[in-house]
Amino acid sequence: MSDTESTNPHSPVIADRLRVDAAPADGVVVIAPHGELDFDTVAPLVDALNAQDPASHVVIDMRAVTFMDSSGINVLLAAYQTLTKKGGRLSLVAPSGPVLHTLRIVGVDTLLDCHSSLDSAVNS
């Protein structure tokens, strides 16, 4: 699959708008999206989340997310439901100002564990 293809047949991913890195860290999986999370770009984040054991602790490092719309929120909520149903956990790290504002508007910040640092989220 090329950098500009997506698993979502309805929206090609524009490679320069979102990159997603995933790596284990101290017994948890850290997923780090970089860029914008919207309808056209969420597929790599969905793929990274779907590749994880649903009984694991997944940390999404939001420090490099510059924009998020309802598509990104839906991905976070779906991941939270999948993980918690199977005994796993989802934590967020330091959403940026605009992203945190979006999470607060819809109340997601009260549902998901939000941490100010990666170390705090990994060790929670």
Rank of each mutant, 00 (worst) to 15 (best):
T82S: 14
M62K: 00
A43H: 09
D109T: 05
V20C: 03
T102A: 15
T4G: 12
M1Q: 13
I31S: 08
L92I: 00
L118A: 02
R104E: 15
A22Y: 10
A121V: 11
T82F: 01
L49D: 06
L100N: 11
D21P: 03
T41W: 08
V42S: 07
A48R: 04
G35N: 01
V59L: 08
R17C: 14
V93P: 11
P9Y: 00
V28S: 07
L83Y: 08
E36L: 05
L90F: 05
D26I: 02
S70C: 14
G88H: 00
T41C: 00
A55N: 05
S96N: 11
S117M: 01
H101Q: 13
N123Y: 01
S120H: 01
S6Y: 09
P44C: 13
V99T: 06
A25F: 13
L77P: 03
A121C: 06
D16Y: 11
T84G: 04
S91L: 00
S116C: 07
K85F: 09
D69E: 01
D38A: 07
K85R: 14
A43E: 13
L37P: 07
G72A: 03
S120V: 03
T41S: 15
A32N: 05
P33Q: 05
A94Y: 04
T66N: 04
L18R: 08
D119E: 14
D113R: 04
A15V: 08
N8E: 10
V46E: 11
A79E: 14
T102C: 11
P9H: 04
G87T: 02
A94P: 06
T4Y: 12
R104F: 08
N8K: 02
R89H: 15
V75R: 01
S6R: 00
L111I: 13
T66H: 02
D40M: 10
P24A: 03
D3H: 07
P98C: 01
S91E: 02
D16C: 05
K85H: 13
V46N: 04
A43I: 04
S91I: 03
D26A: 15
P95F: 10
D26V: 07
V42Q: 05
P12S: 14
S2T: 10
V28Q: 01
D109W: 06
D38H: 07
V46Q: 14
D21K: 09
A51C: 09
V65K: 04
